[in-house]
């Protein structure tokens, strides 16, 4: 059998006395589209940062594409692509310049660079905004550019930390289909974090549900759902799975925002009366 793309063994990361990642052991196969699903503060980003060599674990070990995260960092970096949760662009450069910077740092030659820049710009529908400074992009446009950038150099393993956070529904679907296509036709191994249930359900071959730094369960979304299926709950969602295993509901941003808006409306009506 082929060696796995990622193996982690009892990975731990503490910040002072907070344990952000708590004995996480995972095995992700090459070509898999793997999801880390969990609420805010679960430790998803911290895991991604450890696996992408940006921070070191407090304890435990891991390999990415066969290379040790503590010993062969440069080899890992050559094989991965990352789309960070937080902005990571240069606001004083244009969209095209940001992409060009990236391509040059990865050693792409001029012809490839120019072709790829155009390709990915088209993909995220930013061709007409390519020559505007990033500082003038909207949040969603910036996000799309970062996704485009992560794909440019054809990594073997792609980390997507909440890739569709803050995107409108249409763009989100568009990005989803592209993620799926990359995984299927180019066999890119993808590790995706999200707290959108439907995103994990729709995209992922396997999902690890993570809470307080610990992996609660890890399996195919269908299998997870069948674990909680019952007479009262004939058609469970991943939401129900999360509730079942943690006893809590995952905080859904959209839900919260909706509630918040309703509260404000009510407040307003009260005042006018």
């Amino acid at each position: 059998m082929e060696a796995p793309a990622i193996v982690t063994h009892d990975l731990v990361r503490r910040f002072d006395d907070l344990t952000a990642v708590d004995h996480v052991s995972l095995k992700i196969q090459k070509g898999e589209l793997f999801g880390l699903l969990g609420p805010n503060g679960a430790g998803k980003t911290t895991i991604v940062k450890i696996l992408t060599t940006l921070i070191k674990p407090t304890a435990g070990s891991a390999t990415v594409w066969g290379y040790d995260i503590l010993k062969d960092q440069d080899m890992i970096r050559a094989h991965i692509g990352v789309v960070f949760q937080d902005p990571s662009v240069d606001n004083k450069l244009t969209g095209r310049e940001n992409l060009d910077f990236h391509a040059r740092m990865y050693g792409l030659d001029r012809a490839t660079r120019e072709r790829r820049v155009e390709e990915v710009l088209k993909l995220v529908e930013l061709s007409d905004k390519a020559d505007i400074l990033l500082g003038k992009y909207s949040g969603g446009m910036q996000r799309r550019l970062e996704i485009a950038r992560g794909l440019m150099h054809h990594p073997n393993v792609l980390f997507l930390d909440e890739p569709t956070l803050g995107l409108d529904a249409q763009t989100r679907r568009h990005i989803w289909s592209y993620i799926k296509e990359m995984n299927e036709s180019e066999h890119v191994t993808i590790i995706l974090t999200t707290h959108y249930m439907e995103e994990a359900d729709f995209l992922c071959d396997r999902v690890a549900i993570i809470d307080h730094g610990r992996i609660i369960v890890c399996d195919h979304p269908g299998v997870l759902k069948s674990m909680v299926r019952s007479e009262e709950l004939p058609d469970p969602s991943l939401e129900d799975v999360f509730l079942h295993f943690t006893g809590r509901e995952i905080r859904d941003e959209e839900g919260n925002e909706g509630q918040h808006a309703r509260k404000i409306m009510r407040h307003w009506r009260m005042k006018r009366r």
Partner: peptide, 14 residues
């Protein structure tokens, strides 16, 4: 602070 260092630091450049 602006996050761009992350972009630089995950590239395979020494």
């Amino acid at each position: 602070e602006f996050g761009f260092l992350k972009e630089i630091m995950v590239t395979p450049v020494s």
